[in-house]
Every structure is written in C-alpha cells, then in structure tokens.
Design a protein around this nucleic acid. Structure first.
Lengths: 220, 220
DNA sequence: AATCCCCGTTACCTTACTGTTACCCAACTA
DNA sequence: TAGTTGGGTAACAGTAAGGTAACGGGGATT
C-alpha cells in the first residue's frame, strides 16, 4: 500500500511515516498542499492523509480539488481542533474519515486498512459514461449493463478507483494474484476480455494501455 | 416527529440535536442505554437513533431489548467506520438502518423520513412484487403466499434486508449456521429450495447468484 | 409409536471462469 | 531493414462453482 501524507508539523509527519513503514505501508510526504497536488498528477495513491490546517491551501481544499478531479482515493483528514464543525467541512469536501490529534498510530493504520478493503459505503464511481455501484456489484456503460466475471470486476474496480491515473502492471498483478502469478500472459487475457465487454460496443474506448507501464481507465 | 437519541460522544450528540431541530424534528437525548431504556417505558417515539458503541450496554443490546418488548419503532444504528461488521449484528438485533460515522446530517434526516413513511406499518419489506411482513412471518409474491421453512425464511429475510446489495456467501453461512457449517453444499440446497418457491412460478426472477461471490435479491 | 417435514448428504450434470498455447501485428532498436 | 519486445486475438481445455434430483435421518407433531 502506498499513501500520500500532507502535514506541516514535521515531527508529527516523521512519526507517522516511521510507524507506517513498520506496518509495511509506503508513504510519500509533503508539507504543503501545492506540492502534494502536483505530485498527485504524476502518481496515484491508495489513500491520502491530509492535515486540515496547513499553511497556504488547507487540507480540506486539497481534498475538494482531488474530488473535483474525479479521483475517489480514500481520504483521511487530520484535525487538531476537535470541533465537529471542521469534521463536517471535511466530509462535504469528500473526506472518508477523520482523526482528531493527538491520535494513536494504531488507529490510523486500522482506518487505512478499513478504507482499503471496504471503501466508503454505497460508493459509486464514474468514469466518462461508465457508472459503477460498488455495493451492488453493478456496472454499466451508457445504457448497456456490463456482465463481468469476478476477475474482470476486480480489475475494473481497481482501475476505476485510480482513474485517471495509470496503474502499473506490477500493482495489478499483485492485486489480482496476491500469492504468485499464474503466467505472464494471464493479465493480457484478462485485459483483452475486459476490453471486449467494456469498449468493443462503444466508439470511445475507456481502457487504454500505456505500453511498458500499465493500464488506465479514462475518458478521452 | 419525535425521536430518541442515544449517543455518548457529547459533541456529536449536540450537533445532531441542533440539526434535527432546524428540520422540525424534536429530539430527546440520553448518553447511556439504561437511562434511555427507562425513558422508553414512559414515552413512545417515532424513531430511535442508537450508537453501537456505548459505555455499558451497547446500542445493539438496547435495540434487541426494544424488539423483544414487541416495539417496532424504526431504529437507526450509528457505527464507527472501522467496526463496519457491527452493522450485521445491528440488523439481527432488529435495526432498520445504519449510518457509518462520520455521516452527513442531511443523510440522517433523509433516512429518518424514509423510515417514517415506509416503516410505519410495522416491519414490512418490499422487493419488486415481493412483500414481507417480518412480525407476521408472512411473505407473498404478487398474490401467491409463500410457504417457507425456517431456514428459507431466515435467508429470504437476510437478503431482503440487504437488497439490492449482494450478500457474500460467507456472510450468509455465518448468519444461518453461527457455529460451524454442516457442509459446503448446504447453502446450495437451501438456495435451490428457496428459489423454487420464490421464483419458479414467476417469469421475473428475484433471487440471483453472483458467481463466486454470493446472492442478491433484486428486481430486474 | 407412527407420521410428517425440514434439512443435510450424496451424486451427477451444466455452466462459465480462467489459464495455456499459438500466431499475428505494431512499435521500437540496432 | 531485420530483429526484438510487448501487446492483441483466437481457440481450447481443465476445473471450480452452481443447479438439479433423489435419499434418508431426526426432531416435532399427532
């Protein structure tokens, strides 16, 4: 798992990073929203940990920008003031969870993992004219309902969650086959099959291959 | 409308109460289950909002007590993000709905109103042309009354409560056979039998299998 | 005690998911 | 240009998962 931490108290940030590492969670770190934002254009993350009170652009604003860009990356807000008003602002900006400082490292990790597996309840994802209801296990492109096998569904969900960013081939293989890949061509086939039910009947393809890198799901 | 709120995070409770007031919803408040219980003996409410994690008796227990007393007051459970599993327990205790913290105030009110209109006539569930009266243990499809064995009833109820979401095979097995499954095929048979009395005489099936995942009850 | 019915078991069949292999094509490289 | 690499397409097969049917034990009801 790879997360992005944005926090301007350096000591706290170091503490968090250190603890995450011991839990086998990789972590990129920035101390301001602007730098984090530009990094988000290049790299896709499994979760964001944002401080509410940053100098300059606040974590809430950053979260809102991320959501407006169409990213559904799970997002945890950190706030020092434990007034609920701030929390509400966070949710309206699209945050999935919050933690009040000071918090136990353990709790942060628990929530990260919870978000990782379940995601937010009733979450719906949209990429172009593709609409996905996670809980329903229902996906449709324009008006066409997509019939997906379990693996196809997993892949589509993974790509949709990271859209419009590229997901590396390694990451995909790791997600689909946690303990050992069957063969080098398995993913190739899966891609082919997903593309067939997803794109073959529409003129605008959503699933693109970044040669030598991985796959992307994006409109245009 | 008059609701009873039981919640031991004081800030959250105040926020909820304040918001409910602006929606013209009256609200009595307690921070523990015992006090709430004794109040319930004196006053009848249009809905209950219970926190799952209370010091002392939990919201789930309180809900169960209320049901055992024969009250069918609509009941919404509040549960923290990382204990999402609790929602199942909540449903089995007789809860009508749940919200994962943090939640938008607006959503709480929406669900209250929804329960107010649909849940008013006792515990009734509808999926397509299937109509279930929980208290009566009565189920009918269109005009046909369904004769269900205990296990079939439990399964149907479980699925109906989650409709139109998929219920995983594991969840079902855990619910039906809390201490150890009889065999791998038991559920298969049960499904077959339920489907026979539920779907075989209608052209539109309600019970669908998500291969490799679980079962869904849904119209279309 | 006799009967009934729920439900778990077994067996067999059907479906469809998924991995394999083979071959082709496009892009990049020497 | 020829060779190499990575991706797309197609047919095939093994196997896991689900559907169906018949049987029988055991608890409940009478």
């Amino acid at each position: 798992m790879l997360v992005l931490l944005v926090e301007d108290e350096h000591d706290l940030a170091e503490l968090v990073m250190e603890y995450l590492l011991t839990c086998n969670i990789e972590c990129d770190y920035f101390d301001n929203a602007e730098a984090a934002w530009s990094q988000l254009q290049k790299q896709s993350y499994d979760a964001l940990i944002l401080d509410v009170n940053l100098a300059g652009k606040s974590g809430v604003e950053l979260c809102r920008m991320v959501r407006q860009q169409g990213l559904s990356t799970p997002c945890i807000m950190l706030t020092a003031m434990h007034t609920l008003e701030d929390k509400i602002i966070g949710f309206e900006a699209g945050a999935d969870d919050y933690l009040v400082k000071p918090f136990a490292m353990q709790e942060l990790v628990l929530r990260l993992q919870s978000l990782q597996t379940t995601g937010k309840k009733g979450h719906a994802l949209n990429v172009g004219d593709l609409h996905i209801q996670v809980a329903n296990r229902h996906a449709q492109r324009a008006d066409r309902v997509l019939k997906l096998s379990p693996d196809e569904w997993t892949l589509l969900l993974l790509l949709a969650r990271h859209s419009p960013n590229v997901v590396s081939k390694e990451k995909i293989e790791e997600t689909l086959w946690p303990d050992g890949m069957p063969s080098n061509d398995a993913l190739k086939m899966l891609t082919y099959r997903l593309r067939k039910t997803l794109d073959s009947e529409s003129e605008q393809p959503l699933l693109h291959t970044e040669r030598g890198v991985g796959l992307v799901l994006k409109w245009l």
